[in-house]
Design a protein around this nucleic acid. Structure first.
Lengths: 194, 194
DNA sequence: CAATTTACTTGTCATTTGGCAAGAAATCAT
DNA sequence: ATGATTTCTTGCCAAATGACAAGTAAATTG
C-alpha cells in the first residue's frame, strides 16, 4: 500500500478539501523513484508528465550562449516539479530537469490531467492555484533580481531554504542567484567575518 | 456604438474563436478613459477590476527599501493590465499601476469575471491561457536577468518593443531592466559609438 | 583505501555598475 | 512664450562582480 500522506497534506495546504478527496486525487498518481543525476526532462522534448516531489532535490537548467549551465530553478520537496510552459502548452521545452539527489516522486501524464481537470472542478481549481502560486514566486524573484543586491538575495534564500544549502552544491545555487560561484564564495566569506 | 475590434482581434489571437463570440465577450467589458499619470491601482488595495489596454502605455511599480520606485512592468497596448496575484487571490497588492500616457481601456470587475468563468468554458480557457502566457513572459525575463548582460537585455527589449522607447521615459525602462538610468545612458552611448 | 573527480575558496586584475552631482535638452504648465 | 520641471547625459570615483587560474577540501568511484 502506497503512502500518499505527504502528498495529501500538500494538496490540502494549497487548496483545502476533505482528506478523502485529497487521498483520491493523490492515488491517481503513479509513484516513481529517481536516482541522483537522472533526468526528468531534456531540452527540446515536450513535457508529457507532471511530477510531485515527495522527497529529494531537483534542479532545472538551460544553457546560455556560451554553453554554460544556468540554474533556472531548484525544487525542494514537497512541491510540484515541471516545466509548466511545456506541459500546459504542449510545446518543446528549453530546459533540462535533473535530480540533484535520489528522489521520491508521484507522476501523472498530460492526458489524464486533462480528464481530471474536466471532471473535477476542485482539481481544475487546484491547477489554477498552482499556476498563480508559481507566477507569484517568479514575480518575487524578478523583484529581488532588480532591487536586491546579490548578498541580500543570498541571505533571503538562506533564510527561506536552509535545506537547499545543505543538499545542493553552491555553484548550482550561485547560478540560480544570478552570480558566479566565486562571487558567492566571496559574499559568504564577507558575511562570516561580520 | 463602441468599437471593440482591437479587443476582439486580441482575444482571437490568443484563443481562436468565432468573431461573434469574441465580440460577445468584448461587449461585456466597460470602456473607460485614463489620463496620463492616473492610477489604476495603489499599493495595499485589492485589485477588484481587470483591464484590457486598447491604446496607451501603463507602468506598474513598487518601492524598494530606500523608497525608490522600481518598475515591475511596462504595458504596451494591446494587452491586459492587472496585478494577477491581487486579482486572482483577492489579496492586497504590493504594486502601483499608473498610466504613462492617456489610455483607452475596457474593464470588468472580479465578480463578473467569476460568473463568466463559470458559465463559459472558452472564457475560462482564455483566462488560463492569459495566466500561462504571463508566466511565460516572466520566465523569459528571469532568464534574461540571470544570463544576459544589461546591454543585451536592453537590445532585446529595443528589438521587441520599439514603441515603448518612443513613449516611455528611459528612467522607467532602466528600472525595468534592473539598472540605473545613468548606466542605461552609458550603454546607449557605447552602442551608438559602434 | 587510493585515485579521480567534483566542490569550494582565494588571488589578481579587468569590467560593469552604482552613487552623486552638474549641466544640457526636452517637456510641461500657466 | 517663459519659467519650472522633468528627462537625459556625462564625469568622477567607489563598489560589486566576472574571468581565469591555482590550490585545498570533500565526495565519489572502482
Amino acid at each position: 500500500m502506497i503512502n500518499t500522506e505527504i502528498f495529501e497534506k500538500y494538496i490540502i495546504s494549497l487548496f483545502p478539501m476533505p482528506t478523502e478527496k485529497a487521498n483520491f486525487f493523490a492515488k491517481q498518481f503513479e509513484p516513481i523513484l529517481l536516482s541522483k543525476n537522472e533526468f526528468l526532462l531534456k531540452e527540446g522534448k515536450i513535457s508529457k508528465v507532471t511530477h510531485f516531489l515527495e522527497s529529494g532535490f531537483i534542479r532545472s537548467f538551460t544553457l546560455d550562449t556560451n554553453g554554460n549551465e544556468v540554474t533556472t530553478n531548484i525544487f525542494s520537496a514537497p512541491c510540484f516539479v515541471n516545466d509548466f510552459l511545456s506541459f500546459f502548452k504542449q510545446q518543446p521545452t528549453k530546459e533540462n530537469i535533473q535530480a540533484l539527489t535520489a528522489c521520491n516522486l508521484f507522476r501523472m501524464n498530460y492526458d489524464d490531467i486533462q480528464v481530471y481537470f474536466h471532471s473535477f472542478p476542485e482539481f481544475r481549481e487546484f491547477g489554477r492555484i498552482m499556476l498563480v502560486t508559481n507566477y507569484s514566486l517568479l514575480h518575487e524573484r524578478i523583484l529581488g533580481m532588480i532591487k536586491d543586491t546579490a548578498e541580500i538575495r543570498y541571505l533571503k534564500m538562506l533564510e527561506q531554504h536552509k535545506d537547499i544549502f545543505k543538499n545542493v552544491p553552491l555553484k548550482i545555487i550561485a547560478s540560480y542567484l544570478g552570480i558566479t560561484d566565486s562571487s558567492l564564495s566571496r559574499i559568504r566569506k564577507e558575511i562570516a567575518q561580520k
